[in-house]
Simulated scan of single mutants.
Amino acid sequence: MIFESLKPQILQIVSSKENTVDERLLDICKLLEKNISYYNWVGFYFRNGNKEELILGPYVGAPTDHTVIPFGKGICGQVAVSNKNFVVPDVSAQDNYIACSITVKAEIVIPVFVDGKNMGQIDIDSNTPNPFTEADERFLEFVCENVATIL
């Protein structure tokens, strides 16, 4: 399975101390987008200090106007409040969805916890309808657990 083959590369990127945190996060985005065919936009959002909003971090994919997302707004904003994974098989069926592109069909957002606190999340958009499985969730949880070690 592709996820198992990517895990050592994730660990290598995270442990690469010669790169800044943002460079390592961008390298993770590039790795995922390049190797998983249905990951069409991969990025990180992080809590903006004590404000109840997320700010866009490193990402790969089409440019987005959504650089600041209030808590509760869209899928990312909902994850900031719920502290739970959110898998959206069909974005058109979501009332509280922020459209980044008309090509996006599905989205998965997994929180990043540092010392038990939700500090951000990885956000992945797919142009493929309903592509995400439990294997994606488990793999992305692994990614987020390792990202947490460098935040």
Rank of each mutant, 00 (worst) to 15 (best):
F3W: 08
F3Q: 04
E4A: 12
S5K: 14
S5E: 14
L6T: 12
K7N: 03
K7I: 01
P8Q: 07
Q9C: 00
L11K: 14
Q12W: 00
Q12G: 02
Q12M: 05
S15R: 11
S15G: 14
E18S: 13
E18P: 00
T20Y: 07
V21I: 14
R24D: 01
D27A: 15
I28W: 07
L31R: 02
L31I: 01
L32M: 14
S37Q: 12
Y38A: 00
Y39S: 00
Y39H: 02
Y39I: 00
V42W: 01
G43K: 00
Y45R: 05
F46Q: 12
R47C: 12
N48C: 05
N50I: 06
L54H: 09
I55N: 06
G57E: 03
Y59T: 06
A62I: 12
P63L: 11
T64V: 11
D65C: 01
V68C: 05
I69R: 13
G72N: 06
I75G: 05
C76K: 10
C76I: 10
G77P: 09
V79I: 12
A80V: 08
K84M: 12
F86H: 06
V88A: 03
P89G: 06
P89D: 11
D90C: 09
S92F: 15
A93F: 04
A99E: 15
C100H: 11
C100I: 12
T103Y: 11
V104G: 05
V104H: 15
K105V: 01
A106H: 09
A106E: 02
I110E: 13
I110L: 12
P111T: 08
V112G: 09
F113G: 02
